[in-house]
Design a protein around this nucleic acid. Structure first.
Lengths: 190, 190
DNA sequence: GTCTATAGGCAGATAGAC
DNA sequence: GTCTATCTGCCTATAGAC
C-alpha cells in the first residue's frame, strides 16, 4: 500500500490552508494540487464538496488543538500556569514569519458565522470542546463551578483575540500580554 | 444634485458587507447591485479595484469605531467603566440576529494578514488608532504609562476575541464576560 | 463622470473511462 | 477507488459609447 491514506492527506492539507488563508480564499484546486491527488479523489471522499471538506477539516483541526491542550494540562497541574504555557507556546510561532501556522478555527468561524450555518455549527462545536477541557481542568484543581465556567468562556475569547492581534501585527507580544494577564483573572480559589 | 455622494455610498455598503461576510466572500457585483450604481462608477472612484476599495472601507470603518470610542469616553471619565460600557454596547447587537453588524476590522485582518500585505497594513493601522485612544484615556486618568500601554494592547485582543465568540455562538455572553473581567485587569493605579 | 457590454480567468462541480 | 476532461457560472477587470 503506497498511499498512506489519501483522505487524511487531503484533510491535513485543507486544514492547514484554511487556517492560513481562510475558507473563501482557499480553492479546491489549490488543495488537490498540493496533495498531488486528482480532483475525482477529493469528490470521492467528500461527495458534498467544499463545505463537507471544510466541516471535516474543522473537526480535524479541533482534535489537534484538543490534544495540544491536554498535553499542556498533563505537564502542569496548576490550571493557570498550564493555560499560560499554552498561550506562550501559541505566541512563539509569531517570532518568525515562516513558523506561523495561521488561525486554528477562528478565521473560518468569523468568515462563516453569518453566511454558512453548517460551518458555523462545526466551529461552535470545536470552541465548545476546548472550553470543556478548561472547565474540567479548573474544577479538578478545586475551583468553584462558577469560576471554572468563567475560565472556559474567557479562554476562547482571550486566545482568539490574542491570535488575531498577533497575526495582524506579526508580533508575539499581544498573545504574551494575554498570558501575563491570566493570573489576574482567575486568582481566587473557592 | 440628486445623488448625495456615490463614492461614500459605495464605501458605506462595502464597509457593511466586508464586516458581515468578509473580503473574499463579498463580490463587487453584490456591492454595486446594492448601491444601484453601475460598475463603471465603482472603478471610476476606485481605479485599483477591489483591493483599493477594501483599504478605503477599512479606513471608513476604523473612523466610525474611533468616533464611537470617543463618544463613550466623553460620557464617562473612568476609563474602566467607559471601556465596559463600550463592550456591553457591542455585545447587545448579539441579542437579536437582525441587529448583528458583523466584525468591524478583525475579519478582514484575519483573512488578509498572511496573503495581502496592503490590506494587512490597513487593518494594523486601524487597530493601532483604537489602541492609542485607550492609552491616552488611561494616561489622562492618571494611570502609569506602562499600565496604560498594557490596557491599549489588551483592548483590541479582548474585544476582537469576544466578538469572535459572540458572533460564532450568536450569544452576547462571551462579550459580557469580557466586560466583567475588565476591572480585574486594570484595577491598580500608579 | 455615467453607464453598458463583455472579456478572460478561475471557481466548484460533474461525467464517465479505467 | 483513481483519474481526466469538461461544464457552467461567477469573479474581477476593462473598453468604449454617451
Amino acid at each position: 500500500m503506497i498511499k498512506k491514506d489519501s483522505k487524511e492527506k487531503i484533510l491535513e492539507i485543507a486544514s492547514r490552508l484554511f487556517q492560513l488563508q481562510g475558507y473563501h480564499a482557499t480553492g479546491l484546486n489549490q488543495i488537490i494540487k498540493e496533495s498531488g491527488l486528482p480532483k475525482g479523489s477529493l469528490y470521492h471522499h467528500f461527495p458534498n464538496g467544499k463545505e463537507e471538506l471544510a466541516i471535516e477539516a474543522v473537526k480535524y483541526t479541533s482534535l489537534y488543538i484538543e490534544e495540544k491542550i491536554i498535553s499542556f494540562f498533563e505537564n502542569e497541574s496548576d490550571p493557570i500556569a498550564a493555560m499560560q504555557s499554552f498561550i506562550i507556546d501559541t505566541a512563539n510561532q509569531f517570532r518568525k514569519p515562516e513558523d506561523i501556522k495561521g488561525i486554528p478555527i477562528g478565521l473560518l468561524a468569523c468568515e462563516t458565522a453569518l453566511i454558512n450555518e453548517p460551518l458555523r455549527l462545526a466551529c461552535m462545536n470545536a470552541f465548545h470542546n476546548w472550553e470543556q477541557l478548561i472547565v474540567n481542568k479548573f474544577k479538578e484543581a478545586g475551583y468553584k463551578q462558577e469560576l471554572a465556567e468563567k475560565a472556559g468562556i474567557l479562554f476562547n475569547s482571550l486566545t482568539g483575540g490574542g491570535i488575531m492581534q498577533s497575526i495582524t501585527n506579526k508580533d508575539p507580544r499581544p498573545l504574551i500580554a494575554i498570558a501575563e494577564a491570566i493570573p489576574l483573572l482567575f486568582s481566587k480559589k473557592g
